[in-house]
Structure formats: structure tokens, C-alpha cells
Amino acid sequence: MVYYVHLLKGLLSPNTFSYQIMRAEAIRGLWKKVILLTLLSTILFTFSGYLGIGMDFLTKEITDLSRQEFEMEKLFATVGRLIWGMIFSMLVLFGFSVILWAILDMSYKKIVVVQLFVLCILLLEKAVLLPFHIWLGIGPEASPFSFGVIAAYLTSSSILVYFFSQISLFTVWAIFFQYKALKGLSERSPKTVLLVIILAHLVIWLVSALLSYLEIEKLI
């Protein structure tokens, strides 16, 4: 059976996708979708950087910098976002796949296909949040779709707020999609597959929270 990668169909029909990818003997259209989503990721991250999303440290420095210095800092930070947009897509598609492949012992290529849909979900979240920032000035840590807002009321710890802001309706959707697709590809029990997926996400959320806390844009 030849499986042709169709992102919209797969997202709308996860059960059908799970059945098809489990029985696929050949995959077509994978690398075209990899290039497309990497390009979309780069555009989204660059545009977010241009709008100043997630770059509060620049706002804090605006009174200490001249107009020219501020624009230069903003340019460097935006370039950093551009680079991070490419790295982000590569990590989701290939880095996460390596973790699952190493632990669950399944087809690496098929995992990458599943991760295409996960990346699509995560980019959709970023796109949905853009209007909230433009019109309401809401940053990713205060997303109405995440637990970041609740965490901000319960704790003053920035790193905890950043961590819980990573947990959103979209990431839950991504985990659900991964589980539905991958449980049929692994010889491990469904509970083990789910546990590995959740633990991998927890590690990623912790790293992302740490990078946000350290304001990684300053280092790029």
C-alpha cells in the first residue's frame, strides 16, 4: 500500500490516517511537506519576532537605547527568531522522531510522517495566537488556550508560568494524535507508547520553559 501525505485529511480523520500509515509499504510526498512546513515555521517565527512576540526584554531596554540601537537589537532578535523557526521545525520532525524511534523501536520514516501532523498542529497554534497579540497584546505565556494564565495566578515563578504555558489545547491535541497513530506502529503496549510520548513532551516543555526564562533571544 502506498500512502500519500495529505495533512488536512490526516488531521480531520486521525483514525483513517492511523490505519493507512500502519499498513503503508511506501510513502509519497513526505519531503515536499517537510519543506513546506519548515518554510511556514520560518515565516511564522520571523513574523512573530517582527511583531515583538516573546521579546519582552527589548521593551525593557527601550529607554536605555537610541532609536537606531533599538532597531538594530530588534533586527538581530528577529533574525534569531528566523533561525529558531527552522530549528524548531527540525526538532519537532526529526529530533522528536529519534527519541520515539530509539525507545519504541518502530519505523523512523513513519514517525516523521506522524510528526508532520504534530508540527502542523503546533504551527496552527502559533498562527491562531497572532491575532490575540496584535489586537490584545497577549503573549504566548498568557495564551487563552494554555494553562499559563492559571499558573500566573497561582505562582510568581516565571519558569513555572512558562512551563504551564506550553501545555495547551493544541499540545493535548498533538499528543492525542501521536498516540492514535503510533500505538499501531509499535509492538509495545498502548500504555507504554502513551507514557513515552507524554514524558518526551514533558522534557521538551521543561527545556522550552528554561530557554524562555533565560531569554534565549539574547544569546542568538
Score class of each variant (00 low, 15 high):
residue 178 Q to Y: 15
residue 208 S to G: 05
residue 119 L to S: 02
residue 118 V to E: 03
residue 64 D to R: 15
residue 199 L to M: 09
residue 66 S to D: 05
residue 144 P to M: 08
residue 43 I to P: 09
residue 206 L to P: 02
residue 82 L to H: 02
residue 105 D to V: 12
residue 83 I to Q: 12
residue 82 L to K: 08
residue 17 F to R: 13
residue 212 S to E: 09
residue 25 E to M: 12
residue 81 R to H: 09
residue 196 V to Q: 01
residue 147 F to I: 10
residue 97 S to W: 05
residue 201 H to L: 13
residue 54 G to Q: 10
residue 168 S to Q: 03
residue 44 L to K: 01
residue 167 I to E: 00
residue 146 S to H: 01
residue 82 L to Q: 09
residue 74 K to W: 13
residue 111 I to T: 00
residue 35 I to T: 05
residue 72 M to S: 11
residue 109 K to D: 06
residue 212 S to A: 15
residue 59 T to I: 06
residue 91 L to V: 15
residue 118 V to R: 05
residue 181 A to L: 04
residue 149 V to T: 14
residue 69 E to G: 03
residue 165 S to L: 10
residue 93 L to A: 05
residue 167 I to W: 00
residue 94 F to C: 07
residue 75 L to N: 08
residue 54 G to C: 07
residue 184 G to H: 05
residue 54 G to D: 01
residue 172 V to D: 11
residue 137 G to V: 15
residue 149 V to I: 13
residue 75 L to V: 03
residue 13 S to A: 09
residue 128 V to D: 05
residue 70 F to P: 09
residue 80 G to Y: 15
residue 64 D to V: 13
residue 114 V to C: 08
residue 206 L to Y: 04
residue 103 I to D: 15
residue 33 K to T: 03
residue 19 Y to G: 03
residue 181 A to K: 02
residue 112 V to C: 15
residue 50 Y to M: 11
residue 124 L to V: 15
residue 32 K to D: 12
residue 7 L to E: 08
residue 199 L to T: 12
residue 182 L to M: 06
residue 206 L to K: 06
residue 44 L to P: 01
residue 19 Y to H: 15
residue 147 F to N: 00
residue 216 I to T: 12
residue 30 L to I: 04
residue 218 K to A: 06
residue 13 S to N: 13
residue 17 F to I: 11
residue 201 H to E: 00
residue 192 T to R: 13
